[in-house]
Design a protein around this nucleic acid. Structure first.
Lengths: 198, 198
DNA sequence: CAACTGAGTGAACGTTCGTTCATTTTGTAG
DNA sequence: CTACAAAATGAACGAACGTTCACTCAGTTG
């Protein structure tokens, strides 16, 4: 399949659909958002959606892909930034939070919509999620941990805490960098008072 | 309003509706479950639901109430069981996990269905959730923590990790008591290797 | 036996859903 | 100016949704 002729056609129309869908899926969920809602927000009729996407599930898949892409590249910027693996982990968490609770809804959809709930694309969605989470596996592999620590569980514990922020975080809360720092520090040093603490 | 005559009518019919609804809401979500699905599972026609509940949202509210009740009473059994507050917290987490990933779907619904998604009962659902989470506030208040530790964030971090298990936990995983122990221990002592560790 | 009650029926209601498609509009290239 | 392709229309499709309601039916109760 040659691609000698690059697509000069407007990609931004499709992209605008994806952006609008991401916002609505993030706010109201997949089932809570109708094709008509998306069309209305775009200022077009429902049929127009199907000039760009094969189905509603296909549109969700496009949103998911972009969401994973964005949060992945944000985290990738930090993954080897420092020589201290704990610092790298903390920065990755910070970027994860930033993308997750930032104004645009792409990453929110990835966390909010459970892959298994949309049967038609469940496999693809699961794969995309795994792709992203793999980064945290590597970040945690780089840590020197107490003997017997279950790294897999630690990863899930951290991701759980991070993703749950979507439920409670409001803009008036503390800075995201502070939250990321505290979450990682709690898991690094522990929270119990120690002999010798001030 | 006197209640001199106790209700001798069959409560178990209503309760069976709630149980079936809990299972389906937990498995397929609120939007993903229709009144017809619930009726079919009960072996009745859709209209029968409205002899017991004012609306679908009302049925969800009943499920939520039972869910919060069950997980609350399970956690309450452990909340003051020991004189060591860390032990109490760990046991509470263990019971939380048990109820959450156990076979019946009541507690799953409480975690899976976001109160804000069902506008008609959003206020009530939020209140019920808060009631439950209050228990963890008290459990964490009882801990002696390093100076400067944000107890509120610690609570959210722990609840996030606990509730996220719903996404990844499968029966073949480690024992829930072990998981609860590890999650709390990670936050208590930290996971970083220390001088003097074996 | 008659009156009553609560549970359930079965069919229908109005609405909304995802999706289709022949047709029109729009924009670009020869 | 013409030709072509992409984008969007607008109306409609069948299906599924939550909900209603006059009714039957079974099981107490006096």
């Amino acid at each position: 399949m040659l691609e000698t002729v690059q697509k000069t056609t407007d990609l931004s129309a499709r992209e605008r659909f994806v952006t609008v869908a991401a916002e609505l899926f993030a706010r109201n969920g997949y089932d809570g958002t109708s094709i008509r809602d998306i069309a209305r927000e775009m200022g077009v009729t429902p049929g127009a959606v199907y000039a760009h996407f094969v189905s509603k599930a296909g549109l969700l898949l496009a949103v998911y892909k972009t969401g994973v892409e964005r949060i992945s590249s944000a985290v990738d910027e930090e993954i080897h930034a420092s020589t201290d693996p704990w610092t790298n982990l903390e920065r990755a968490c910070w970027r994860h939070l930033e993308v997750l609770v930032a104004e645009n809804g792409f990453a929110k959809v990835v966390i909010r919509v459970l892959p298994t709930d949309i049967e038609e694309v469940a496999g693809e969605l699961t794969t995309l999620r795994r792709q992203y989470e793999e980064r945290f596996r590597r970040l945690i592999d780089a840590l020197e941990l107490r003997a017997g620590t279950n790294r897999n569980l630690l990863r899930l514990q951290l991701l759980g805490a991070l993703n749950w922020t979507q439920v409670w975080y409001r803009a008036e809360h503390a800075d995201l960098a502070d939250i990321a720092h505290a979450l990682v520090e709690n898991l690094r040093r522990g929270t119990e008072i120690q002999d010798g603490d001030a």
